[in-house]
């Protein structure tokens, strides 16, 4: 990316953040909901779920963080679709700003929003008994993986926002991304799920991600899970960026 494109993306990301700060719904969805969900999981379901000798709150935090990435990404789809529907995209295009910086601005704003949500969730988690054993390197790796995942789902969501004709439809398209963490080891161990789900749960991107984050946070061996998670994200990101470039050209023909 050229310096110009970087400045453009940064300015657009600033705009995206300002827009979401003024939108109470978005603030609640992206900051409060993840915290509330964690409390629900820990206090309502936690007692019924056997996670071995790990406390449930420690077990579930990575899952909640991944889930909240999905919520944040849903916001990307809605704001992209909103820009496309109004005259905004026309003005940007006459300023010779292409589809990629426009979407990258929204994605960057989502990543920043999500980083805040992540910090908030971690803070509350500590208060209610989350006791990770991670090394500093483990923390960095876990947070890094999470950011890569957030970026990936936001780009997928941005592409969905281009595909959808209305912001409401865009919200619906991203439902899938919010759903993805459930059939994985995010909230309950996979071996407690019905047999037919094992195949999917073990071979979807969220499982290696959760396994790596949990392993890194508890300072346990993670094997090649981080690499599998990264490979998934890289492939999905490449698809999302290519698809959104093509969709943008198609929508603005």
């Amino acid at each position: 990316m050229s310096a110009d494109a970087l400045t453009t993306t940064a300015v657009l990301a600033g705009r995206g953040l300002r827009l979401s700060r003024r939108n109470l719904d978005a603030v609640i969805t992206s900051l409060m909901l993840p915290v509330l969900l964690m409390l629900v999981f820990v206090y309502f379901f936690g007692g019924a779920i056997d996670t071995g000798d790990t406390r449930y709150v420690t077990y579930v935090v990575p899952g909640v963080l991944v889930l909240c990435a999905g919520f944040g990404a849903a916001g990307t789809a809605v704001s992209v679709s909103d820009d496309m529907r109004r005259g905004t995209v026309d003005r940007f295009r006459t300023l010779d700003i292409g589809g990629v910086p426009i979407l990258a601005g929204h994605v960057a704003a989502t990543v920043v929003r999500n980083a805040l949500a992540t910090a908030l969730v971690l803070g509350v988690a500590f208060l209610i008994g989350f006791r990770p054993a991670a090394t500093p390197g483990g923390w960095l790796a876990a947070i890094g993986l999470l950011l890569v995942y957030i970026t990936t789902v936001s780009w997928l969501s941005a592409a969905a926002g281009l595909l959808a004709r209305t912001p409401e439809a865009a919200g619906a398209v991203t439902f899938f991304m919010m759903f993805l963490p459930y059939p994985s080891s995010a909230f309950v161990p996979i071996d407690t799920m019905p047999d037919w789900l094992h195949g999917f749960a073990e071979h979807q991107p969220v499982t290696p991600l959760i396994e790596s984050m949990r392993g890194l946070l508890l300072d346990r061996p993670v094997g090649d899970a981080p690499w599998i998670a990264l490979a998934w994200c890289a492939a999905l990101l490449a698809v999302a960026v290519a698809a959104s470039g093509a969709l943008f050209r198609f929508r603005t023909k």
Partner: peptide, 26 residues
């Protein structure tokens, strides 16, 4: 060129100054 289209292209929840500054930066 520059264009002002038939339908508004400003952000409703930003202030007037923020809108102009953003466009100017862009």
């Amino acid at each position: 060129i520059s264009l002002t289209g038939q339908y508004a292209a400003v952000d409703e929840t930003l202030t007037g100054a923020e809108n102009l500054r953003t466009t100017a930066r862009l």
